[in-house]
């Protein structure tokens, strides 16, 4: 009950303040201006991310025409449900970042698994040419860096030296 009384008092004072010249239209302009500033900040951050967010050397991680088709096939078959790239994606199957260049694996290994499956993974319903596009896509990832990072030097402030540059070759 006491709260209701307090509320009533607060409301009265607010209404009183508003009657002394703070108009609704002014509030509207003020709020629109703040929203526009926020959107502007977002635009700056977006521009920075789109133009200077990678540290890979030119040409590495590039998507060829084949790899772009492979990217769409990767999405069409929802490969991300089970597999990860740089540790992002599903947890059922292994990370595929370096599958086309890892020791004991390679493009043929990847193509074979896509076409014929394994005990746990079903064969994907793709043509050999499409399997080639998927391998080209995976190879673009492999050319961009190494994951997981097994060689690292931790620093006392909680980072690791490889964060400073693309030193993961």
């Amino acid at each position: 009950m006491s709260y209701n009384m307090d509320l009533y008092r607060i409301d009265l004072s607010r209404i009183e303040n508003m009657s002394h010249g703070r108009s609704t239209s002014f509030q509207g302009v003020h709020q629109r201006a703040i929203i526009l500033v926020l959107v502007g900040l977002f635009a700056v951050q977006t521009a920075l991310t789109w133009t200077s967010s990678t540290s890979v050397a030119p040409g590495r991680g590039s998507l060829s025409t084949q790899a772009l088709i492979g990217r769409q096939l990767y999405q069409d078959h929802n490969c991300t449900a089970c597999h990860q790239l740089y540790g992002l994606g599903g947890y059922m199957g292994p990370d595929l970042t370096n599958v086309t260049r890892a020791q004991g694996k390679g493009p043929d290994y990847a193509r074979g698994i896509i076409l014929h499956g394994t005990q746990l993974m079903p064969a994907q319903q793709v043509t050999p040419a499409e399997a080639g596009h998927l391998v080209a896509y995976l190879d673009a990832w492999a050319s961009s860096g190494t994951y997981p990072i097994r060689s690292f030097d931790l620093t006392p402030w909680g980072t690791y030296l490889q964060m400073n540059d693309d030193a993961r070759d």
């Binding site: 789109w50 890979v56 998507l63 772009l68 673009a140 990832w141």
Partner: peptide
């Protein structure tokens, strides 16, 4: 034209 997997993933 300059599609890149790292920027793709970052964005």
């Amino acid at each position: 034209d300059d599609a890149n997997v790292v920027r793709d993933l970052t964005v």
